[in-house]
Structure formats: structure tokens, C-alpha cells
């Protein structure tokens, strides 16, 4: 049986790294940035947030925090769609999901560049 060269290991590594980042870091950010700050349990002033996000190391951290889990999403969502019976659409699904993650990575770089 002929075997095909596949890019799966590449995407799987990004998925695994993104899943780990999401598991370790996302819950606390969801709690603080998604609930505590909007609900006024705590406040992070514009000046302080800007000073924080402007620091190169924090920028690097934010890049890892946002970009990597996008690949985790892309990988899982791609297989969810396939598991829901869309096997005939494998290639377009993969392009859309991973393409979305790449677009998100570029957007993250652009936003962080502008801070």
C-alpha cells in the first residue's frame, strides 16, 4: 500500500502546544478578563493595562496565550466536523480551520505590534 507524506505531525504539535497553553492559562484569564473586570470585582486601569501589555515579555506571553490555542481549536474543530460525517469535505475543512488559525495568528501579531 502506497503511503502519503502528511503534514499531520506539524498541526498535531501546534494542537498539543495550544491545548497545553489553554489548559494552564485560559481559565484564570477567563475569570479575570471575562468576568471579574467587566463585573467590577476588580479593575485594571487603562494606564496599567497599557503599561503591562507594552512590555516586550508580556507581549510575547500574550502572543503565546492567544495564538497557540487557535491551532488547538482548529485541529479539534476540524475533526469534530469530520466526526459529524463531513468526511467528503476533508480538504476544504482543513484549509478553513487551519487557515482561520493562521489568520488569527497574523491578527494577534498585528494587534500586539500596535500596542
Amino acid at each position: 500500500m502506497a503511503t502519503r507524506k502528511t503534514s499531520e505531525p506539524f498541526w498535531w504539535l501546534l494542537f498539543a502546544a495550544g491545548g497545553m497553553v489553554a489548559a494552564l492559562l485560559v481559565p484564570v484569564h477567563l475569570l479575570v478578563n471575562g468576568l471579574a473586570v467587566p463585573l467590577g470585582w476588580t479593575s485594571i486601569s487603562h494606564a496599567r493595562m497599557l503599561a503591562l501589555a507594552g512590555h516586550p515579555l508580556v507581549k510575547l506571553y500574550l502572543f503565546v496565550l492567544i495564538a497557540l490555542p487557535l491551532y488547538h481549536w482548529a485541529h479539534r474543530f476540524r475533526f469534530v466536523l469530520e466526526d459529524l460525517g463531513l468526511h467528503g469535505w476533508r480538504t476544504p475543512i482543513a484549509i478553513l480551520c487551519y487557515g482561520g488559525a493562521v489568520a488569527g495568528t497574523v491578527a494577534t501579531l498585528w494587534v500586539l505590534w500596535g500596542i
Partner: peptide, 11 residues
Amino acid sequence: EPVMSDAVGVW
């Protein structure tokens, strides 16, 4: 490895 790392293998 060729069977395992094939698209219809572990991935």
C-alpha cells in the same frame, strides 16, 4: 512507521 504515520494511521 509508514503504516503508522500514514494519513489513515495514528493521525
